[in-house]
């Protein structure tokens, strides 16, 4: 089962979200747009290199992942307000040890919520 679930998750999420199996899924808070598909793998919004047409600095023919994420997080139907608000939260650095693991299992066992002991969370904001 532990080996089967990552495979199942990959089969489901790869075609829809181009999932990279980071093992700590934040899709719900990023407008159902995977931040690991950003060439810089940024977890906290778009870099300053976004082109005037909204495309990626690194891959000019690709729309910026975070421009898409921002748009979707605000406008996509059926997304709960709580998830929309989470867009602006400070997401911690990626735990590279979880790469390839099932984020579904890590959600249940809480591993995807664990942060390094010295991590200073940003002041949480709930407006918007």
């Amino acid at each position: 089962m532990p080996k089967l679930l990552p495979l199942l998750e990959h089969v489901v999420k790869k075609p829809i979200w181009d999932c990279r199996m980071c093992g700590q899924c934040v899709l719900h808070s990023t407008g159902m747009t995977c931040p690991m598909t950003c060439p810089k793998t940024l977890r906290n919004g778009p870099c300053g290199g976004v082109r005037p047409d909204g495309n990626c600095e690194v891959v000019p023919e690709m729309p910026c992942v975070w421009v898409k994420a921002h748009d979707r997080s605000q406008h996509m139907p059926l997304i709960p307000k709580k998830w929309r608000d989470e867009f602006n939260h400070l997401r911690p650095p990626v735990n590279n040890a979880l790469q390839g693991e099932s984020s579904w299992i890590n959600l249940i066992n809480g591993k995807d919520q664990q942060t390094p002991a010295g991590w200073v969370p940003g002041e949480e904001r709930h407006e918007h």
Binding site: P39, N44, L90, P93, P116, A117, W119, V120, P121, G122
Partner: peptide, 25 residues
């Protein structure tokens, strides 16, 4: 390319060090 941290995370790591602790604690 590395990008192990992103810009906002780096600010937070700096804040942690200014408070006397590495990211590890």
């Amino acid at each position: 390319r590395v990008f192990d941290l992103d810009g906002p995370q780096l600010v937070s790591v700096m804040t942690g060090i200014s408070q006397g602790s590495y990211l590890s604690g």
